[in-house]
Design a protein around this nucleic acid. Structure first.
Lengths: 243, 243
DNA sequence: ATCAATTAAATTTTCGAAAATTTTGACATT
DNA sequence: AATGTCAAAATTTTCGAAAATTTAATTGAT
């Protein structure tokens, strides 16, 4: 493993709030590296190497690993160390199946409970996201850090008014787990896809408090990446088996 | 905090498989103490005390805490230590709402995919569980370790054939989180309740591959504890506010 | 040559203590 | 009395090295 590049990682975009813990900091950095694919599926995560890269002790690094294990991004083999969780069509389908249930659930809740501040936040976030999205859509095959951040922020803003903690938590985990597949999807795409349109329509349905339409659009939106990748990966799976 | 009693904790009932890690061992012990209510909701979890009780280092204990945080049994206040997660009617309702979705989902999957071995395992587990359950039902107000273990094992056996990893994972987390409320429910119950009947009917519907009936029974089963507690807690909440 | 046993090397897990942070309590100020 | 400041105490977080375990290499036997 050659030295990793952290320069483009926007951990700081989040609220700086309370000073981050060392392990938390490492967790965020590692998460980005995994979602980006810099640390590839199946790859072994060695303490010595990453300790040096990130500059922390074994126990703190272990804590960061553990957090990633709980999010399904890292695998732990008892006493045999950690490795980046593998990806597979089956997992993507599994994730998507649940997302098709939980995202609409959260969305309906949010539409029911959302207030003016919620609406305003959606608009504000969409503004930021759409700028990056349109700029980005010219260059297919790249899924950069900023796009990912605002894409997530946008989707989160839509459901932010959902009062169910557990629903939000599970939804967030699944959204996160989908990220690697989105990146993969972007990498395989040849022609640009007008995503901002999908997102705008979805937002409009939500702001119009049209639950049925919002649900339909959301499900359609999720299915797109999933189906596209299922096709692409199915074709590639046998030939390009790396790690 | 006075010295804790680990004597009755059946960590060993699980598969001994690969030798447990120190942190994992502590995690299991703490989990039981929290589920039993020995460590009460809201209670601060101090390193010094628990380190001594469990005989391990700070970083290992921290790892155990973190795992419990991820399961929602423990709360972490950044740099202010850990405490047992509080319980509330709202949380119970939230948990139950999701369980009403995920348990039937897993159950239908299992009924669809289950083979002979799955059926056999259900029967075997039910045999163990029902023995304890009938013995236990004479003594209301007590929810012992063995009952909890086999109750969980029984419910898990029903859905064991569900091929969806994520569904199983989330379902397990929610089942676990419900455990404290089950214990509370048992503690508040005055007259014995014939639970084994519910469970038997549920099992029969599953083995008969009657998804609709199984789903209906499962939902009814979950609603019982939830509704009972919602009533009891609602009444008590204002008066007996401890921690 | 293949396989099993043994030793050495690499790696993960755990500890005990140091560093950093928060909480408490005493004292002074308005 | 309420508020603010500062040092001491308590507590959590982090480290660097020791202990335990797994993996790889070496040797010897069939």
């Amino acid at each position: 493993m050659t030295s990793l590049d952290f320069s483009g990682i926007s951990t700081a975009v989040d609220q700086p709030e309370t000073k981050l813990t060392v392990a938390d900091d490492a967790y965020r950095k590692l998460r980005v590296l995994i979602l980006q694919g810099t640390l590839q599926p199946g790859q072994k995560l060695k303490f010595e190497v990453l300790q040096q890269e990130l500059g922390l002790s074994a126990s703190s690094l272990r804590e960061a690993f553990m957090k990633l294990v709980n999010e399904g991004l890292v695998q732990l083999a008892q006493r045999r160390g950690f490795s980046v969780a593998p990806i597979s069509i089956e997992e993507l389908k599994d994730i998507t199946r649940l997302r098709k249930i939980l995202e609409p659930l959260a969305l309906r809740d949010a539409i029911e409970h959302g207030d003016d501040a919620w609406e305003a936040q959606i608009l504000a976030t969409w503004h930021r996201f759409s700028k990056i999205d349109t700029a980005q859509s010219d260059a297919p095959g790249i899924l950069d850090d900023q796009w990912s951040y605002w894409h997530r922020a946008f989707h989160e803003s839509l459901v932010a008014a959902c009062p169910s903690k557990k629903t939000m938590q599970f939804r967030a985990v699944l959204f996160e787990q989908s990220e690697r597949y989105r990146a993969l999807s972007a990498a395989r795409r040849t022609k640009p896809r007008k995503k901002s349109d999908e997102h705008r329509k979805l937002m409009e349905a939500v702001l119009a408090r049209d639950s049925d339409k919002a649900e339909a659009l959301m499900i359609k939106h999720m299915a797109l990446t999933s189906n596209f990748l299922a096709n692409v990966l199915d074709a590639t799976q046998d030939s390009g088996k790396d790690n």
